[in-house]
């Protein structure tokens, strides 16, 4: 029984990678959302929170974190695109002329079918998001930058739409990560899928209220007292 190809990059290996990185990314967005919620406390607190992050380990933490996050994203995307795009196309070269969902016990949903689309949209959004708020901020502090970004209606709507996409992605991605890592059985699967729905709703709503809130209340001219 010769070794055939790499274990890590086998069909199961790729799912394990997607699942592990997916869990890490979910952990990240939970932390990110909690951080973002400081916006509701007030501009000072939000800016202070950002500065606190920048200060950990003399600024080295953020860089290290960013490098790690970059690779997590990269593995998640490459593994998932291979599974749901390239391998999939290779495995069925002539498709069905008439196909429909089996229904019943199937867990195929709009959310599971659109993983690749929602994933790509989220990836594009993340790049823009980093550019806008990190690499090239339009204002001298983070709060003003955010407020500035959401003054326009179209960008706000775009962001809301992407957050709905994130919700869709998580609706399948949450329980699927556990299934991919082998942490599921007939007893836990129904629980996991229900938790997935709640989690996806919480994340989507949590993230989409921010652009809406900022669109209506944000002040792009805000400056931190003390001169930032």
């Amino acid at each position: 029984m010769a070794e055939k190809g790499s274990v890590a990059w086998s069909s199961v290996g790729k799912k394990v990678i997607t699942g592990l990185t997916g869990l890490a990314l979910m952990g990240f967005i939970i932390a990110h959302l909690i951080g973002n919620l400081t916006l509701f406390i007030g501009p000072h607190e939000f800016v202070a929170y950002g500065e606190f992050l920048e200060s950990i380990l003399f600024g080295k933490f953020v860089i290290a974190f960013e490098v790690v996050m970059f690779f997590i994203f990269l593995f998640h995307i490459v593994a998932a695109v291979t599974v749901a795009w390239t391998d999939k196309r290779k495995a069925r070269t002539e498709g069905y002329r008439y196909a429909k969902n089996a229904g019943g016990k199937s867990r195929k949903t709009l959310s599971s079918r659109s993983m690749i689309v929602t994933g790509i949209l989220i990836a594009i959004f993340v790049v823009g998001h980093i550019y806008l708020f990190k690499i090239s901020p339009s204002k001298e502090n983070l709060y003003a930058t955010v407020a500035d970004a959401f003054t326009g209606l179209s960008f706000t709507i775009f962001t809301v739409v992407v957050m709905i996409m994130l919700g869709l992605h998580l609706r399948h991605g949450f329980w699927s990560a556990f299934q991919s890592l082998g942490w599921a059985n007939d007893k836990y699967l129904p629980v996991l899928t229900r938790v997935a729905l709640v989690f996806a709703l919480l994340m989507a709503v949590g993230f989409l209220v921010i652009p809406v809130f900022m669109h209506f209340t944000g002040d792009p001219s805000f400056t931190m007292p003390g001169g930032h």
Partner: peptide, 20 residues
């Protein structure tokens, strides 16, 4: 699993159509 991959089957995306 290695043989399944060699045969050219796709990877599982947890849609669950199979069980249905």
């Amino acid at each position: 699993v290695a043989q399944m991959d060699d045969e050219g089957f796709g990877d599982c995306s947890n849609h669950g159509e199979c069980e249905a």
